[in-house]
């Protein structure tokens, strides 16, 4: 029993128990808050399993954005769940017991947790990503190197999904418009909160920029920075009201930022093709090639990701917050 095992086991147990409580709760506000708690525990587990970049994202997304979205939707709809009829429990229990049993049976073939000679670790690509990348790309944070260079096309696909999801939300909830609307949360009377959040706002944005441009050397990158930017605007919108924060960030500008990032990403790919390389082959960007060109490409891609993610997340929040309750 090492310290690692004790901490790991404790956190996983807390996570499972939280999930059990969430499943039993019928008050959905409480369930949403406990979901935020489970996200925090998950982020701690990610740190424990050496995935600092992922932990970063999970903390900002799970606790910041998805909780705000859930609470906003609960304010628009009903926050109490009806009693689940008894006859629905039995099939669900049967299915989960069967699936769980199959998974546990199949897990016997999984390599031991943390073993250094599992198929994942022995695969030739490990060597490339961890050591060869230092010569080819020269970025200490290998997660950034893989995300923005080796698997850039994959990342482009993910960004398209984010873009499509943002568009779908805007289509479903109508365009972002100016105008008089009921204040969703009247936080204007909380003076302390207003002073503290206007004090923290610039630091949140500077931190997002730091995360964006420091992603080569430490944990960080476009996805994290975009989400942190968005949490900054969500905070602003919650505290100062939607009208004020849409004056800072007009919906038209936001709407044009969403495709701008994606366009920048695809445009970079086209430029590398015009320069005689293949799609997203950063080596062609500079005549000297090598790590310098890779750096340029990675930085452009990270900025593009940051713009699209931040714009999509912020406009999703605006779309939900601008909706009037229909009751």
């Amino acid at each position: 029993m090492t310290t690692f095992t004790v901490i790991n086991f404790t956190l996983l147990t807390i996570l499972t128990v939280t999930a059990l409580v969430i499943a039993r709760l019928r008050a959905l506000y409480e369930a949403a808050m406990l979901t935020a708690l489970s996200s925090l525990v998950t982020a701690s587990l990610f740190v424990l399993m050496d995935a600092v970049d992922v932990a970063f994202t999970e903390a900002a997304v799970g606790v910041g954005i998805s909780t705000v979205l859930l609470l906003g939707v609960l304010a628009l709809t009903r926050s109490r769940e009806a009693v689940t009829p008894r006859h629905r429990h039995l099939p669900a229990i049967a299915v989960t017991a069967l699936t769980g049993g199959l998974l546990v049976y199949a897990a016997q073939d999984l390599p031991a947790f943390g073993s250094a000679d599992s198929p994942v670790q022995r695969h030739p690509v490990t060597e490339v990503y961890l050591h060869q990348s230092q010569k080819e790309i020269g970025v200490p944070n290998t997660v950034t190197a893989v995300l923005a260079s080796y698997r850039a096309l994959d990342t482009l696909g993910e960004l398209v999904v984010v873009f499509a999801a943002g568009t779908a939300v805007l289509l479903l909830l109508g365009p972002l418009t100016h105008g008089k609307r009921r204040q969703n949360l009247d936080l204007m009377e909380y003076k302390v909160l207003r002073v503290v959040s206007s004090l923290l706002m610039p630091f949140v944005l500077v931190f997002a920029l730091y995360v964006l441009f420091h992603g080569d050397f430490g944990p960080g990158g476009g996805f994290q920075a975009g989400v942190i930017f968005a949490t900054g605007f969500v905070l602003h919108g919650l505290v100062f009201g939607l009208d004020k924060s849409q004056r800072v960030l007009p919906p038209a500008a936001l709407g044009s930022l969403v495709p701008l990032g994606l366009g920048l990403f695809v445009g970079l790919g086209v430029v590398t093709m015009l320069l005689g390389g293949s799609f997203l082959d950063y080596g062609t960007l500079l005549p000297t090639g090598g790590p310098a060109a890779q750096h340029l490409g990675i930085l452009t891609v990270e900025v593009a990701i940051g713009i699209t993610v931040a714009a999509v997340m912020t406009s999703i929040f605006f779309a939900f917050a601008g909706r009037r309750p229909t009751r």
Binding site: A51, D53, V54, T57, E58, V61, G62, I65, S66, L69, V120, Q121, V125, T126, Y129, L130, T142, V143, A145, V146, L147, R151, D154, T155, E158, V161, V162, A165, G166, A168, V169, L172, G221, F223, G226, V227, V309, V312, M313, I316, F320
Partner: peptide
């Protein structure tokens, strides 16, 4: 290994976007 981290990093952001849908 960095590869699972890359996949999950993007999946989290995609996850919240689809949750919003």
């Amino acid at each position: 290994h960095p590869l699972p981290q890359v996949l999950i990093l993007t999946a989290i952001v995609v996850g919240v976007a689809t949750l919003a849908v």
